[in-house]
Design a protein around this nucleic acid. Structure first.
Length: 452
RNA sequence: GGAGGUAUACCCAAGUCUGGCUGAAGGGGUCGGUCUUGAAAACCGAAAGGGGUGUCAAAGCCCGCGGGGGUUCGAAUCCCUCUACCUCCUCCA
């Protein structure tokens, strides 16, 4: 790398990100130059992420080649346009245009060759850019893995039991509200049937959550498609890097959504929103489908890790200057549900090594699971800054005449339903194996107070 | 599944048959003004897509008429293909 002077101003990853948007045109952001001129600085800020950055090494070379090709073809195109305009005039004057046409034919051939080359280069560049993770926010703790995540706060009293507690899968099976055995017969492992009051409880939870976020937190309710196309999966960052995590319908090239984040964030893809539309907040209920490739042997029993689960998801589109306040609020919205359910939890700030590919900052909310004597993730709240907005082309305009800018996107579970069931069954269990229904859910349960 | 049709800028909409001063008309809306006590209407005027390249900055240039490809010296216009929407038939929760 050539040595350069680095501007050490703070940057979001988005400022250096470029991507194809519709037309497969290479959309460079105003700050493509930032990546060129501050390449090593950017790489440095990415190094704690634990992601493979080998592709990035080829950026300089490819970027330069690309611009060289563009200059060359554009000069030729300018010439062609110019001459083509002259041809009808010359014809009118009765001049022989054949030599000019022949010459332009050659120019055209050359343009085609160069365009071909350019196409290849741009595809490579796109591949590189899509494989680069988001840049962590400066407030994110530096660390390698989950050991280095930082606890931000705790809420609630951990319950004490005077009897021997049971895991939720035993409780659920004995109460006849969960059936794992038949699910594995009908589908396979990591699936479940909810029955009777179990099904009712699941349904009560998502209704309660949807109602609460819509009525008290200002979200607009949404029910999204469960299948999405490749573009959408790329927009939110699941593709191209993590295709093995998703279920894919090959005949259609559709993907089963791993979270409502995908359809809901892409709801505004390729749009320019009005300033007054922001913040835009959606709460969506959906099924979620995950292959759990690489999780073999982990959480094999129970509801914690299923191929299919239900989730209520919060998604926000906000102005860049508002996104970190929005992250705190959104996390609070998810916490509120646990507080109303009276389930103890803690909030963890993910360290640089545990951030995932797409987030600039992320809080996990972990609920107390008695049988495991630990906290388990029940919600994940992230600020993506403009990472997804660039990939999905989501912008807004300040006033009537402003230049389009990228929005910031955020989302968080509010909450994962299956894991909420786990927490309720285990935390509210009684000595006789019955389970008390949290008060806020009883109106949704037809007044049922106990499952026995 | 069968038969047609449509896609142009924030919105509506010409242009497509007959390729070239369309380097996208005309409206609406928006903004400014005149008039008015204020507003509406009317009239006058203005700005107006999104990218790329280039540069200290700019100018300039390139791209852009649903997406992609092709024909041609030259494509909104001709050809191929994909997608979305509409109408009718068929089927279906």
């Amino acid at each position: 790398m050539v040595s350069r002077e680095y501007k050490l101003s703070s940057l979001s990853w988005g400022e250096v990100f470029l991507i194809f948007i519709k037309n497969r045109r290479l959309m460079t952001v105003l700050d493509i130059k930032y990546l060129r001129n501050n390449f090593e600085e950017v790489t440095k800020r990415l190094e704690h992420r634990g992601e493979d950055l080998s592709d990035l090494e080829r950026f300089g070379e490819i970027d330069q080649k690309r611009r060289q090709l563009i200059v060359e073809t554009e000069n030729l195109k300018a010439k062609r346009n110019d001459v083509s305009k002259q041809i009808p005039i010359l014809k009118k004057e009765g001049k022989d245009v054949q030599p000019v046409i022949t010459e332009m034919r050659e120019v055209g051939d050359r343009i085609n060759e160069l365009d071909q080359e350019l196409r290849v280069i741009e595809a490579q560049l796109k591949q590189i850019m899509l494989s680069i993770p988001n840049i962590p926010h400066e407030s994110v703790p530096v660390g390698e893995d989950e050991e280095d995540n930082v606890e931000v706060r705790r809420w609630g009293e951990i319950p004490e039991f005077s009897f021997e507690i049971k895991p939720h899968w035993d409780l659920g099976t004995e109460l006849g509200i969960l059936d794992f055995e038949r699910a594995s017969k009908v589908a396979g492992s990591r699936f479940v049937f909810y029955k009777g009051l179990g099904a009712r409880l699941e349904r009560a939870l998502w209704n309660f959550m949807m109602d609460y976020h819509a009525e008290h937190h200002g979200y607009e309710e949404m029910l999204p498609p469960y299948l999405v196309n490749r573009n959408s999966m790329t927009g939110t960052g699941q593709l191209p890097k993590f295709s093995e995590d998703a279920f894919h319908i090959e005949a259609w090239d559709y993907y089963l959504i791993p979270t409502a984040e995908v359809p809901v964030t892409n709801y505004h893809s390729q749009e320019i929103l009005k300033e007054e539309d922001l913040p835009q907040k959606y709460v969506a209920y959906s099924g979620c489908f995950r292959s759990e490739a690489g999780s073999a042997g982990r959480d094999t029993r129970g509801l914690i890790r299923q191929h299919q689960f239900n989730k209520v998801e919060l998604v926000q589109f906000v102005k860049p200057e508002d996104s970190y306040d929005a992250l705190e609020q959104l996390t609070g919205h998810a916490e509120k549900i646990l507080q109303l359910l009276k389930l103890p939890y803690r909030v963890m700030s993910m360290c640089t090594g545990d951030l995932g590919f797409t987030a600039a900052k992320k809080y996990d909310i972990e609920v107390w699971v008695p049988n495991q004597n630990t906290y388990r993730e029940i919600s994940s709240c992230s600020n993506f800054e403009d990472f997804q907005a660039r990939r999905a082309g989501i912008r807004f305009r300040r006033g009537a005449k402003g230049k389009p800018e990228f929005v910031h996107t955020l989302n968080g579970s509010g909450l994962a339903i299956g894991r909420t069931i786990v927490a309720i069954l285990e935390n509210y269990q009684q000595e006789d194996g019955s389970v008390i229904i949290p008060e806020v859910l009883r109106p949704y349960m037809g007044g049922v107070e106990v499952i026995r």
